[in-house]
Simulated assay, not measured.
Amino acid sequence: MTTMAQETATGPAATPQTASTIRRHELAAFLRHRREHIAPEQVGLVRGTRRRTPGLRREEVAQLAAVGVTWYTWLEQARDIQVSVQVLDALARTLLLDPSERAHLFRLADANDPRPAAECPVVTPALRAMLDQLDPIPACLQNSRYDILAYNRTYGMLLCDMDAVPPEDRNCMLLSYTHEEWRSSIVHLEKTQRLMAARFRGSMAGHLADPTWKTLLKRLRTSPEFCEVWDRHEVMGATPRRKEFRNTHVGRITVDHTDLWLGPATGPRMVTYAPADEESRERLERLHALAQAR
């Protein structure tokens, strides 16, 4: 049994404020360590003969990340200041963080990385093997934001050359408003956009304060076409449905869309497009052959 004297001696359990303070100090130490272990030459700077600071100077990091020197100094001093996900992203690039270090930075800042991870914990080697085994049936792994986390060869050529799309742009909703080949491949584009927006709104209700979702929504809102659909406030859940694609290599394909959920919640899922008729099956087989020959 813990006495009051013992509690006073050891201190009470960590409060949210204490946890926040600990994170700030860990973040400050992490930034200092990374800064001190990056040679000026690694970021295109000249070392010079009078440099005493190991690694980069604070003002150099601030300049490269396009933030104020005073503000960055406060960050390394563990001051209680707000850090946006855009600034964290800039610091991650400036400090040459690898994926694990980048994830650690965002965790210490108590923020969500707006960039879809190239290596997602959901995408296990077993799931990648399943995607490959499904060929020539197009299949991919998505999260509830429509980020495309992984895909098989046939899916990679179904709507566009997915390999040529930067990882941060591999999002079905974003591509449906910004990528001309993707847009032209969807036979019923307006209907598809409305359905995706309605599902996205329903999913976002549980992530209203999540910076990752807010960042994606901000990008989408630059499209007047999206704003018109979004302002209808339509909401819809996930349902299997038939889709038609106009592939640039093999022609028109009709498929049945199915979501295979990877957990109890409607989050990560495997999306499959089974051919709806024999002609579509043959065309998917041809598309897969083309993908294998690349």
Rank of each mutant, 00 (worst) to 15 (best):
T2R: 02
M4P: 08
E7V: 04
T10S: 13
A13H: 15
A13L: 14
A14I: 15
T21Q: 09
E26W: 13
E26D: 10
A29Q: 10
F30A: 03
L31R: 08
H37V: 14
Q42Y: 06
V46E: 09
R47T: 11
R50L: 05
R52M: 02
R52A: 03
T53V: 05
G55L: 03
R58Y: 00
E59K: 08
A65M: 04
A78V: 09
Q82D: 04
Q86M: 10
V87S: 03
L88E: 00
L91Y: 04
T94V: 04
T94K: 00
P99A: 06
A103S: 07
H104Q: 08
L105E: 02
L105M: 01
P116K: 15
A118T: 14
A118S: 07
A129T: 03
M130K: 11
M130C: 11
L131D: 10
A139F: 03
A139Y: 08
S144Y: 12
R145K: 13
I148T: 14
A150R: 05
Y151M: 05
M157D: 00
L158P: 01
L159M: 08
C160L: 14
P166W: 15
P167R: 07
E168L: 13
E168M: 06
E168C: 01
R170V: 04
M173V: 12
E180M: 09
W182T: 03
I186A: 09
M196T: 02
A198G: 09
A205C: 05
H207W: 00
D210R: 00
T222S: 09
F226K: 05
C227T: 03
H233V: 03
H233M: 11
T239N: 13
F245E: 01
T248Q: 01
T248H: 07
I253K: 09
T254M: 11
T254F: 07
H257I: 13
H257V: 13
P264K: 12
P264R: 02
T266C: 11
G267M: 00
R269I: 05
V271C: 09
R294S: 06
